[in-house]
């Protein structure tokens, strides 16, 4: 769907924002780009709808190089690649309905068709009772719903989300992420989002790229990247959000990290392995949770007794075991 190759972007004298970035995003996936502020996330996202132009390299949307598109061609691309903003970007002088109608009016759609589409979109995001209000009368979450409805107006294939939950409280964040997830499922919408919050990635992304100083430090499925991070940046960012710190122990236990994903997380793996092999298992630390719709657990275990190797082999049949 989206492919960028060797993209570089500089600002001013010597300021490198993107430095030979490569990335491929598939149709219908929710792709997350995470990085600290200043890593080049915003600039990268804005390449996908031509709000920024690359100094080098190509930005391909369905094989079409939009880095070189201009005028009417670029405007046509923007109707297929819509965007949602951190601070909503709503017109304070227009009602909810008028805001949602704006992209259609800009595209020159006729009035009756606009009215119909706008009503449908406002229902879709659950704002039917607020259609004639002005943005100033809405809460942050409601404003972002208007932003999403507006972005969907021209029936885009791709939705770019620029830190869309960063201005919202945790509960509202969840409801907005659920909305995006539903749109992805029901409309087959490709969603690219940038964020600095690991929880956003955890909750809805299929794949994730970690950006550091204008380069992709790591890319993979959310499970790969979050459960076995390779890049130092990813590890550091995960350490900031992970609650559990393993207990230190002096006894003669074999310490290992055990990660399960999906169905295995629902099974009583530890007690059955302990019973079968006679090995004692202590849980020293770890966490459990969800990655999009998949349950996961990642535990630091301490094994003691005879037959540790057999126990490790049994554990490995349920998930990944690392020393």
């Amino acid at each position: 769907m989206i492919r960028i190759t060797g993209v570089a972007k500089r600002f001013g004298a010597g300021g490198v924002v993107l430095d030979g970035t490569d990335l491929t995003i598939g149709a219908g996936e929710i792709f997350g780009i995470i990085g600290r502020s200043g890593a080049g996330k915003s600039t990268l996202l804005r390449l996908f709808n031509g709000l920024e132009r690359p100094d080098e390299g190509q930005v391909l949307i369905r094989g079409e190089d939009i880095g070189t598109r201009d005028g009417a061609q670029l405007r046509a691309v923007r109707r297929r690649v819509a965007m949602v903003f951190q601070n909503f970007g709503l017109l304070s002088s227009r009602t909810v309905e008028e805001n949602v109608a704006l992209p259609l009016r800009i595209a020159g759609v006729d009035r009756t068709a606009i009215a119909e589409r706008v009503a449908e979109l406002i229902d879709r995001v659950g704002l039917a009772d607020h259609r004639r209000k002005y943005p100033a009368q809405l809460s942050g979450g409601q404003k972002q719903r208007v932003g999403i409805a507006r972005a969907l107006a021209t029936s885009p294939e791709v939705l770019l989300c620029d830190e869309v939950t960063s201005a919202l409280d945790p509960e509202t964040t969840r409801s907005i992420l659920d909305l995006l997830s539903g749109l992805n499922r029901e409309l087959g919408l490709t969603i690219v989002l940038i964020t600095h919050e690991m929880d956003v990635i955890r909750r809805i992304c299929d794949r994730v790229a970690v950006l550091e100083a204008g380069r992709v430090a790591e890319i993979g499925t959310t499970a790969e990247v979050l459960l076995s991070p390779r890049a130092a940046t990813t590890r550091a960012m995960l350490a900031e959000t992970d609650r559990g710190v393993p207990i230190e122990t002096r006894s003669a236990m074999r310490i290992l990290r055990f990660t399960t994903l999906g169905a295995a997380a629902d099974h009583p793996v530890l007690s059955s392995v302990a019973r079968e092999t006679g090995v004692d298992i202590a849980i020293l630390g770890g966490q459990t949770g969800r990655l999009r719709d998949q349950a996961y657990s990642q535990l630091t275990l301490g094994l003691s007794g005879d037959g540790i190797d057999a126990a490790v082999a049994r554990l490995a049949s349920f998930g990944r075991v690392e020393a």
């Binding site: 046509a76 965007m83 970007g89 800009i106 507006r150 021209t154």
Partner: peptide, 20 residues
């Protein structure tokens, strides 16, 4: 953000001025 949002909708500069 409002200006950027209007551009991201595919507005021409004239539409940006008159509509936003």
């Amino acid at each position: 953000d409002t200006i950027e949002a209007t551009q991201a909708m595919g507005a021409t500069t004239t539409q940006l001025v008159s509509r936003t």
